[in-house]
Amino acid sequence: MMLYRHLLLAQLRGAMQYRVSFVLDVLSTSLITITEFGAFALVFSRFQGLGGWSLVQIMFLYGMVEFAFGLTDMLFDGFDSPTFAQHIRKGTLDQFLLRPANLMIQIFGSSLSLRRIGRIVLGIGIFGYAVIHNPQVWQLEKLWYLPFVLIGMGLYFGGLFLVGATITIWTVDSTDAMNLFTYGGKEMMSYPMGIYSDWLRVLFTFLFPVALLNYYPALFFLGKPDPFGLPAWMPFLAPIAGFVMFLVALKFWQFGLKHYQSTGN
């Protein structure tokens, strides 16, 4: 942890040399996020909610995943396929391997995409607003469960980033395919499951358990009944699903490292 802090601080000091481009980066990503959410809110205010979900309820769903995903995306930047592909190609991964320190900590410490801060702040804003306007959430046991759900989502997305990095060990080129699961999964989770067709819903509940991570916990927090009549403990699978995903990803990562071939020179 000490090492992680040292490495991150070093990273930040390095990044601060490009202050202008950094500020522009944060501004532009924030602008994109605001526009995205604006469009989203506009659509929903016109329809007066969707499938029995009011705007503030949807904001709860949206804000929760936006925040969790934004934070994970920021922390796992070193594992993000394009960054990790650079580590392989430029030989930084070799340098990490040559140092007597935990490899994953070094990768975590190698980059922190601060430009995601805009997304995170907006996520917190939307989520906070939603919590204030949904009195059903104001119960001690619900607030107590909330961090577990957030951590579950973080582990799930973190696991996906790790899988993406591992695939890059073989492809060397950065793979866009994983974005389908990370960014695509996040988009998917921003809406109530009711808007999807049955087979999609089943797919995203049982095969790629994104519904378990956001939708079902949201039903619990907002005190809404499950329209699909699944067992009452469904909302409590989120931390487990996240944990299992991360564990599997970790195994895959370790397997991948054994097959690391380095690159020329």
Partner: peptide, 22 residues
């Protein structure tokens, strides 16, 4: 053809980071 130094940091700071790592 590779470097173990941090690209954007003064060389001395790279060495100090290595002190922590080692």
């Amino acid at each position: 053809q590779r470097s173990s130094l941090w690209w954007d940091l003064p060389t001395i700071e790279s060495l100090e980071l290595l002190q922590h790592i080692y």
